[in-house]
Amino acid sequence: MSCAYLLVSHGSRDPRPEIAVQQLLGLIREQAKEGIFDSACLELQPEPLHQQIKKFAVTALAAGCDRLQVIPLFLAPGVHAMKDIPDEIALAQQALGENMIVDLQPYIGTHPNLKSLLAKQISPKNTASWIILAHGSRRPSSQAQVEAMAENLGAMVAYWSIAPSLEAKVKDLIAVGKREIAILPYFLFPGSITDAIAQSIDQLKLQFPLVNFYLAPPLGANTQELAQLIWDSINT
């Protein structure tokens, strides 16, 4: 029997992430020879995630699938990826029984090709000093992955919700004479946070008028490449 695949994103009141997820689903379906695909959200939905999983699993079972792969669209091993989603899957599995096996796949931030996706975002401005701006997590270990990737790419790391902040890292670079600074939001999709990042960079431009700032799009802006990365993770 074939597999069913469920992409799980965070969820947002902003429509742009959901539009991006549906575009990803369309691209993945074009590559798939079998199986059915859908998406769900961890938060801001009328139903909790475990009920969304159960509903999709029932549909998948009727279509001839006996296994459901849940793919978290998360970049870092924060609470959502490491606890919330596994807990919701356990609840769904309990409700479904043995008729459908629900497997949790690694979150896409672990994919080895993610580094090459970041490198492509950086390459148009390879003369700039780069800052990778991640969300940050209250789990200290969750920062290690992005910091290792940034070091490998010759970039610095700042965080939106914890220290060190973007402004602090910008000041560090200016203090050593850097006058071309580029920021890569370590986020999959545009939304309220990426809008706020753009506003903060506008403020930095006013604060430091002699510095040239460049803001790259979030990682999911290259939908085809991200879809390929997700497809590769499904087939690994």
Rank of each mutant, 00 (worst) to 15 (best):
E98L: 08
Q69A: 13
E43C: 01
D38P: 05
V102L: 11
L68H: 07
Q51T: 06
D103K: 15
K55N: 12
E47P: 01
F74R: 01
M100R: 08
P86D: 11
F74L: 15
D103S: 15
F37D: 03
E88I: 07
L104S: 08
A57L: 06
H50R: 00
Q93R: 13
K55I: 11
K83W: 06
Q93G: 09
V58L: 14
F56G: 08
A81N: 08
I71Y: 08
D103R: 15
A92S: 10
I36W: 09
P86N: 12
Q69M: 15
Q52H: 05
P86Y: 10
D87G: 03
G78N: 07
Q94L: 06
P77F: 05
I53S: 01
L61C: 12
T59G: 01
L75I: 05
R67I: 06
A76R: 01
Q93P: 06
A57T: 05
I89H: 11
D38I: 00
V70M: 10
C65T: 11
M82A: 14
M82L: 14
N99P: 00
A92R: 01
A81Y: 05
L104R: 15
L73K: 11
L73C: 10
I89N: 10
I89K: 04
G78R: 07
V79D: 08
V58K: 14
S39W: 11
E98R: 09
A40L: 02
R67H: 13
N99Q: 13
Q69Y: 12
E43D: 13
I89G: 07
E43M: 02
L104H: 11
